[in-house]
Nucleic acid binder design. Structure first.
Length: 216
DNA sequence: ATCTAGATCGGCT
DNA sequence: GCCGATCTAGATG
């Protein structure tokens, strides 16, 4: 028999890390392929799991919107081993998380712009309140709808810069194919290379950071 | 040493 | 829809 379907379909009871070779290829391909996969963080307080619903590809010296447009101390991690995290501090208040792509010596990373949080340690019952509140068992769909919210919800911070994302405690894991169609559009918040349609999302998903422009 | 734009978000005119 | 908060990497003097 089948379990009752959730908004994003069923999810595994165990999470299988994606192998490093998954990330060692064209950045735009990886950005697409990450939709529907899981980001898992096993913290001391418990496990947090998000399903990736929106990404953006950032490339190397030919992509002026990318931090790796120039090779500097900050962008060095984007030139290194695929499958590790690139974390940067944004607008004086948020951290953003990327997954490094391409082979060593080639720059590339995928920004995780939105995930649907499907599991978090403190959402599982333990009613401290006499009656069940509105939060019992439910997780707001917009909790991680935006790159700064992804890191906050997933408990990811600057200490994770350079972390290996192919094994616990913080890793990407195999998920289902996205339920909806994949939509594309220009990357958000950049001024250069706006013609590059390197933002990807699951069409109509409630956890998207913001809508995609409708197709022609 | 100083300047500036920035892969954002939440609140409110 | 617009604005302010709050900070830094990288460029320039």
């Amino acid at each position: 028999m089948k379990a009752a379907p959730r908004a994003s379909g069923s999810r595994p009871t165990i999470y299988r890390p994606l192998p490093r070779r998954f990330f060692a290829r064209n950045t735009v391909q990886v950005a697409r392929a990450l939709l529907g996969q899981f980001l898992v963080h096993e913290t001391r307080l418990g496990r947090v799991v998000g399903r990736i619903v929106e990404t953006e590809a950032y490339r190397g010296p030919l992509d002026p919107a990318s931090h790796a447009y120039r090779r500097t101390a900050r962008s060095e991690v984007m030139y290194g081993e695929p499958g590790v995290a690139y974390i940067y501090f944004s607008y004086g208040m948020h951290y953003c998380m990327n997954v490094v792509t391409e082979g060593r010596g080639r720059a590339g990373a995928v920004l995780l712009r939105a995930v649907e949080v499907v599991e978090r340690a403190d959402s599982a019952g333990s009613g401290q309140h006499g009656r069940a509140g509105p939060r019992a068992g439910s997780i707001p769909s917009r909790l991680a709808a935006g790159p700064g919210r992804v890191t906050a919800a997933m408990r990811v911070g600057p200490a994770h810069n350079g972390a290996d994302l192919t094994r616990p405690p913080l890793y990407l894991a195999r998920g289902d194919r996205p339920a909806g169609r994949i939509v594309t559009g220009p990357r958000v918040g950049i001024s250069l290379a706006q013609t590059r349609p390197w933002r990807f999302g699951i069409a109509g998903h409630p956890s998207l950071s913001r809508p995609f422009r409708a197709p022609l």
